[in-house]
C-alpha cells in the first residue's frame, strides 16, 4: 500500500464519526484502487496513476462529506431566512436598549459624559458580537442536528405592509424625540441625585424644589413617558387629527402646570437660588425679568408644538395616497 492513498484515506475518514470509519475506509479504498487500476491498464506508470486518480477525486473532506451527507454550508437554505430574520429582530431590539440603558446608568452613576459614551459604544459592540455569535451557533447546531420541522411555515399572513415612504422620514423625528425626552428625564433625575451646586457646608443643592417630588416631578416624568409612547404612535401611524388632538392634550398637561408652578415661584429650590445668588423675579438688564422670559418661552414653544401637530395632520391627510404612488 502506497503512502499517498493511505494519506488520502486518512484525510477523508478522520472527518467522520468513529463508528462510520471502517466502512468508509473500505469504500474509499475500493474507489481509489478501481481508479488506479483503470489508469495503469491503459497508459500510466503506477505512481503517476495514483497521483492522477487522487487528483481527480478532489478534496478528501468534501468526498467524505458527500458520503455521510454532511452539509458543506454553515447555515443552509432551509434555515438561512429564519436565521436572518431572527438575527435582525434581536439585534434591532436588544442593542439599542442595552446601549441606552448603559448610557443612562453610567451618566447617573459617574456623571462623566465621555466615559458614559465610551461604555455605551463598547456595550453596543459587545452585544452585537454576542448576539451574532450565539444566534448563528444555534442555527449551525440546528442545521446539523437533522431535525426537519424546525422551520417556521410561511403563510400569506406574514406578508409585510407596502413600505410607507413617509415613515423613513419620521424615523429621524422619532429618534430625536426619544433622545430629547431621555435627556430631559435624565436631567430632572440627575439634578436631584448629583447636583452641581454646593451650599456653604458642602451639601448638595438640587436645582428644582425637592417638595415637587411629592407630586409634580412624578407627574412630569409620567408625561415624558407618555410623550415617548406618543412619539412611537406617530412614528408607526403618521400624523392624523386624533394624534394632533392628543398632542394638544399633552402640551396642555405640561404647559399649564409648569406655568402655574413657575408663577407661584414653586419650581426652583430656594436653597439653589440662594446659593447662586440669582432670583428670577428681579429685573435683569433691559427691564425684562428672567421669570417673564421663561413664561414667554414656554408659551411660545408649547403653542408652536401644538400648531405644528395640526399642520402635519393637515398635510398628511391632504395627500393620503402617497403609499402606492411612491412605489417604484
Amino acid at each position: 500500500m502506497t503512502s499517498l492513498t493511505d494519506r488520502y484515506i486518512w484525510a477523508a475518514v478522520r472527518t467522520v464519526p468513529e463508528s462510520e470509519r471502517p466502512d468508509l475506509e473500505l469504500d474509499i479504498r475500493d474507489l481509489i484502487e478501481g481508479a488506479v487500476e483503470a489508469r495503469t491498464a491503459t497508459r500510466h506508470d503506477p505512481a503517476a496513476a495514483e497521483r492522477d486518480a487522487l487528483s481527480e477525486l478532489g478534496d478528501p473532506e468534501r468526498l467524505a462529506a458527500d458520503y455521510v451527507d454532511r452539509p458543506l454550508t454553515l447555515i443552509g437554505p432551509r434555515y438561512y431566512l429564519d436565521w436572518l430574520r431572527l438575527l435582525r429582530t434581536v439585534l434591532l431590539i436588544v442593542v439599542p436598549l442595552a446601549t441606552v440603558a448603559v448610557l443612562v446608568v453610567q451618566l447617573l452613576t459617574t456623571g462623566s459624559i465621555g466615559g458614559a459614551i465610551g461604555s455605551a459604544a463598547s456595550t453596543a459592540i459587545t452585544a452585537t458580537v454576542h448576539i451574532g455569535f450565539w444566534t448563528t451557533l444555534l442555527f449551525v447546531v440546528l442545521e446539523r442536528s437533522g431535525t426537519t420541522d424546525g422551520t417556521v411555515q410561511w403563510t400569506v399572513d406574514r406578508l409585510p405592509d407596502v413600505p410607507d415612504h413617509d415613515r423613513g422620514a419620521r424615523l429621524s423625528e422619532f429618534i430625536a424625540s426619544l433622545v430629547f425626552l431621555g435627556l430631559f428625564a435624565g436631567a430632572i433625575v440627575w439634578q436631584q441625585l448629583r447636583p452641581a451646586v454646593r451650599d456653604g457646608d458642602g451639601g448638595a443643592v438640587p436645582v428644582l424644589d425637592p417638595a415637587l417630588w411629592s407630586f409634580w416631578i412624578p407627574w412630569f416624568l409620567g408625561l415624558i413617558a407618555a410623550e415617548a409612547l406618543f412619539a412611537l404612535w406617530v412614528y408607526r401611524r403618521g400624523w392624523s387629527w386624533s394624534s394632533a388632538a392628543v398632542n394638544l392634550l399633552l402640551g396642555l398637561a405640561f404647559a399649564v402646570p409648569a406655568l402655574l408652578l413657575w408663577a407661584g415661584g414653586r419650581v426652583l429650590n430656594p436653597a439653589f437660588t440662594g446659593a447662586v445668588g440669582w432670583d428670577p423675579a428681579v429685573a435683569a438688564a433691559g427691564g425684562w425679568k428672567a421669570g417673564g422670559i421663561v413664561v414667554a418661552a414656554v408659551v411660545i414653544i408649547a403653542a408652536w408644538d401644538v400648531a405644528d401637530g395640526f399642520l402635519r395632520a393637515h398635510r398628511a391627510l391632504a395627500h393620503p395616497a402617497r403609499r402606492l404612488s411612491a412605489r417604484r
Binding site: 469504500d27 475500493d30 468534501r62
Partner: peptide
C-alpha cells in the same frame, strides 16, 4: 457490478459522471 466498472460502462454510453459523485 462494482463501482469503477459501472463508472466506465456509463462513460462508454455517454453518461458522464465523476467518481467522487458516483460512489457517494
Amino acid at each position: 457490478d462494482y463501482g469503477y466498472s459501472l463508472l466506465e460502462s456509463l462513460d462508454v454510453l455517454g453518461i458522464q459522471v465523476d467518481a467522487n459523485t458516483l460512489y457517494p
